[in-house]
Amino acid sequence: MKINRRSFLKLSGATAGTFMMGGLGFDLSPVKAYARELRIKKGKETTTICCYCSVGCGILVHTLEGKVINAEGDPDHPVNEGSLCSKGSTISQMATNESRLRKPLYRAPGAKAWKEVEWDWALDRVARRIKDTRDRTFKPTVRTTVREKFAAESAEESGLYRETFADVEKEFVVNRAEGIAHVGSAALDNEECYLVQKLVRSWGLVHVEHQARL
């Protein structure tokens, strides 16, 4: 007999009774245990917090032999209680991703392609750039006009206290590296954000901004 949706429906009433007997080849009795080993059974579990939005969901990362094999919601976490959205559900692909940068890349002025370089080389060169630009564009002081209190007097008869101001041009210390700007980042950990602000301000940067402004 040719079976399709239509005939299935047609037959349904008439032949229902035969199902138990296997009349249409339908057999409920020999159900089978479908065994597949839980693939995270031998994995190690590490807790993390999702790297995407600011809800801050807890995630369990399962690893085996140094590789991420699974990641899913942390059921103990009071915010997400084990649940995750599409982004959180797929963070394992972040660790197994072929697009991830594995070495520093360098693009020389005018070049048409990236070149892989060693860390030491790249970091030394960046440090050199920072120093040269900082030295070249460092501004120790600025002259600026400020409004200063010129005189203060109490007029006894009126009981009013009166202050007089004047605009004065003065030189002030600013100790600023004018030629470098920094943006980023809300994608860093707190400790790293703290280090960023500490470091770039020690270099004298004031053009320091990040995602919070957008």
Binding site: N70, A71, E72, S83, L84, C85, S86, K87, G88, S89, T90, S92, Q93
Partner: peptide, 12 residues
Amino acid sequence: GCRGCQAACKQW
């Protein structure tokens, strides 16, 4: 429609 389920299904 957040599609967490669709993604988690693929992942698992």
